[in-house]
């Protein structure tokens, strides 16, 4: 049983397990996701996902349905309603159906897993996502990636390919970050075999084991990377590159894992980074402020660019916004510097 020891020790930014799972399941084009619970759990997430999709230029509605539980099902059990819905939505043959449990169905003890195990003619995947059981957004995301990974079989390795694992589908720069990763990999002649999971069909996931290298979005996805390494023998890099030197290290790591010659790519990227820095030569000596007197931001990738460009962190300089999460690669740093330039121009 999980408990929160004290209200002041609880994580306020962790969100709900359901949304973590939805950030993955709704990125599969031919999948339908059922939230087994009252309609509010679906409506709230539907609105959030729809807004995020639109911000990313995706006009499609999230394929999200609710079992619309009422007090009647809470008292008598909701399995029947779930079965009826699964019968209806499995008939047209979607790529797969995900069933996410909510707090209330796990409280009343619905055997959601048993209902999903029945023969529906299409894969029906149960994801236990009752928020009160703990874990939050990240746990929902990791559990979903793990569940999908467990289902797939080894396939022939494709040389010079990578799979991107756990892109943050709800962050607004996800496609921009993807473009940067693709650019960096092109410097080495490497292509992205699969985005696990973004903008693909359910059957595409079967290709996951074919990537020669897995690149995780961030270190918290290490359990997924480790599992894929154990299952398919695929090595992994535990995060996408942040900052100038981090980007160069990333190129070296990819080259190392894929046994490639790295110096030409490093030379190209170093020259590119020099060009980017040259665009911001006017930053030298500008007093900036990260919220603490005479202190850097504490984020290595940010502090590196501050030092490289000669910005002067003080307690009274221009207050610069810090990005969360840190944008990816050299292009990410360049975007950040453009944003800072606007702030500096307005403030001075």
């Amino acid at each position: 049983m999980n408990v929160i020891p004290h209200i002041t020790e609880s994580l306020r930014l962790e969100g709900c397990t359901i949304l973590g799972a939805l950030s993955i399941t709704t990125a599969i084009r031919d999948a339908v996701t059922v939230i087994h619970g009252p309609s509010g759990c679906t409506q709230h997430n539907f609105s959030l996902l729809h807004a995020t999709f639109l911000a990313d230029g995706i006009a499609a509605l999230p394929h999200l349905l609710s079992t619309h539980l009422t007090e009647d099902e809470i008292i008598f059990g909701g399995e029947e309603v779930l079965e009826t819905l699964l019968k209806d939505i499995s008939a047209p043959g979607p790529g797969c159906i995900f069933v996410l449990s909510t707090c209330i169905v796990d409280t009343i003890g619905d055997d959601t897993s048993a209902v999903c195990r029945k023969s529906w003619g299409v894969p029906v995947i149960y994801l236990p996502t009752a928020g009160f059981l703990g874990g939050g957004f990240n746990q929902g995301l990791i559990n979903t990636l793990m569940t999908l990974s467990h289902r797939i079989e080894p396939v022939e390795k494709q040389p010079l390919t990578v799979a991107l694992i756990g892109e943050k589908n709800l962050e607004y720069e996800v496609e921009t970050n993807y473009a940067e990763i693709t650019r960096l990999l092109n410097l080495l002649g490497v292509r992205v075999e699969l985005r696990f999971v973004r903008d693909l069909c359910f059957a595409d996931i079967d290709r996951l084991g074919g990537a020669a290298l897995n690149i995780l979005r961030e270190p918290l996805l290490a359990p997924v990377g480790q599992m894929l390494e154990w299952k398919f023998g695929t090595p992994f890099i535990d995060c996408m590159p942040e900052g100038f030197s981090g980007t160069l290290r990333f190129l070296a790591e990819v080259a190392h894992h894929l046994d490639l010659d790295v110096p030409p790519a490093l030379r190209k990227e170093t020259a590119h980074q020099d060009e980017v820095c040259a665009k911001f030569a006017d930053f030298r000596g500008v007093a900036v402020n990260f919220g603490a007197e005479h202190r850097l931001s504490g984020i290595p990738a940010i502090d590196e660019v501050v030092t490289t460009l000669g910005l002067q962190p003080t307690g009274e300089g221009v207050m610069l916004p810090l990005p969360v999460p840190v944008p990816i690669g050299t292009a990410g740093m360049e975007r950040l510097l453009h944003r800072w330039r606007r702030v500096i121009h307005v403030s001075l």
């Binding site: 007090e71 099902e73 809470i74 008292i75 008598f76 059990g77 909701g78 399995e79 409280t107 009343i108 003890g109 619905d110």
Partner: peptide, 16 residues
């Protein structure tokens, strides 16, 4: 009344 044994929430049934 209430649910069959093993399903649902009989306690909520009393409240209802």
């Amino acid at each position: 009344g209430g649910p069959e044994p093993g399903v649902g929430c009989a306690g909520r049934g009393i409240i209802a």
